[in-house]
């Protein structure tokens, strides 16, 4: 197992290296200049001279040849220093760190919601295939797939506003500090995102269970006289979980950086919003670090999925 971990860790290196090179140079190909965006985007009547812009470019190191910029950044990144945001001048790691807790919490809550809903619903739907139970659950999940989560978020907000004249808190409070305040802010985006997420997982679980129920070993179990409930719980569930775990894992990784619009709707100060802002501001260093962060997350989640696979499936464990 240790070797497996080491192996996977080493495999991360070329992946992330490729991502680093790609994102750096692709960003430089984009039109738009961080300094112009910062100084001219909302010019409050200041007559900003060319000299000021040039000085600012020099300060950010944008006047240097591309390869110099790259190696400076890359060398720093290797040592864990991702540089300073071109917009705020704060260390990129700081900017990300203060937003990560929120994004992680929403992702975790949405995942919990998805798992809690999807596993029982998907299983029920499969067992009662083509009955009214299945129809209702399928309606639930198809609606979840059809409704974009940001739209659902908007509906939630408007409902809260019109019914309770209340909207969730606008600023983040850590769960440790004040769980009630924390949940009253984050439960809504978690619901909005978790619904779609659980819909995807429910469908996956349903089709996975249906597929597993066709397997020969299920027939074997039935031929042994195992109760149908146990056939599903003991013989089908664990096998059916394998593809569901992948979906859930990748969806989780996506949530870390992908909640762009939903975070906007709920005014969440998360990684997704930071991403959008960084792109709008041509904050190159920030975008680079975020893309790398998300890649690391994807690689890590994949790793965790593999571990879960090994746990669920002895064929992988003993390989």
């Amino acid at each position: 197992m240790l070797r497996f971990i080491l192996h996977r860790t080493l495999l991360m290196v070329p992946t992330l290296l490729g991502v680093a090179v790609l994102v750096f140079f692709m960003l430089r190909l984009m039109p738009g200049d961080p300094v112009a965006t910062m100084l001219l985007g909302d010019a409050g009547g200041a007559n900003i001279s060319k000299e000021i812009i040039e000085a600012e470019r020099a300060r950010l190191g944008l006047d240097q040849p591309l390869y110099v910029q790259f190696f400076k950044w890359f060398w720093g990144a290797l040592q864990g220093d991702f540089g300073f945001s071109m917009w705020t001048g704060q260390p990129v790691s700081y900017e990300i760190a203060i937003r990560l807790e929120l994004s992680l919490q929403v992702a975790v809550m949405a995942t919990m919601l998805a798992v809690l809903l999807a596993l029982p619903l998907g299983t029920l739907s499969a067992i009662f295939k083509d009955t009214w139970i299945d129809q209702v659950i399928r309606m639930f999940s198809i609606a979840g797939l059809a409704v974009p989560s940001f739209w659902l978020g908007m509906i939630i907000i408007l409902l809260l506003l019109s019914v309770f004249s209340w909207i969730p808190p606008l600023t983040f409070t850590s769960f440790v500090e004040d769980p009630w305040e924390n949940l009253s802010q984050l439960i809504w985006p978690a619901l909005a995102v978790g619904y779609r997420y659980s819909a995807v997982s429910t469908r996956m679980m349903r089709s996975s269970i249906l597929e597993v129920l066709q397997e020969d070993y299920i027939r074997t179990a039935r031929a042994k006289g195992v109760r149908e409930r146990l056939v599903v719980a003991r013989h089908a569930m664990r096998n059916a979980l394998l593809p569901v775990v992948t979906v859930i894992g990748l969806e989780f990784a996506f949530l870390i950086g992908g909640l762009v619009v939903t975070e906007q709707v709920f005014n969440l100060n998360g990684i997704g919003k930071l991403f959008v802002q960084a792109v709008a501001r041509s904050d190159f260093t920030m975008i680079q670090a975020l893309v790398l962060l998300v890649s690391v997350f994807f690689v890590l989640i994949n790793f965790v999925i593999d571990m879960l696979y090994a746990f669920l499936d002895p064929r992988i464990r003993y390989h």
Binding site: Y217, R219, T220, K224, G225, H235, N239, P314
Partner: peptide, 24 residues
């Protein structure tokens, strides 16, 4: 019927590769 299955009448299937549950 369930009590008969596996106790009085047992069955052996064609595909030994797929007839056993891989995770048990």
């Amino acid at each position: 019927m369930r009590e008969i299955r596996g106790r009085d009448i047992a069955m052996i299937f064609q595909e030994p590769m797929t007839s056993l549950n891989p995770v048990l």
